[in-house]
Amino acid sequence: MLKTIKSFYEFIRRLSGDDLYDLYLENHKKCSKKHNLMTKKKFYQATLDRKWSGIKRCC
């Protein structure tokens, strides 16, 4: 039961974009080319700029 609740919570986090920075950190650790690590705030801003540069919401 606890496992189901946890996986549901993780799904909701992923769906809402709540864990994007955690994923970014994970990928950054794995990545062989070391770019400058963005702060949480900078990363959030960059995500929003990218997200809202095109048609993202419909009628």
Partner: peptide, 8 residues
């Protein structure tokens, strides 16, 4: 920053 779920 970026805590979408709690903010929502």
């Amino acid at each position: 920053s970026g805590r979408v779920l709690e903010a929502s």
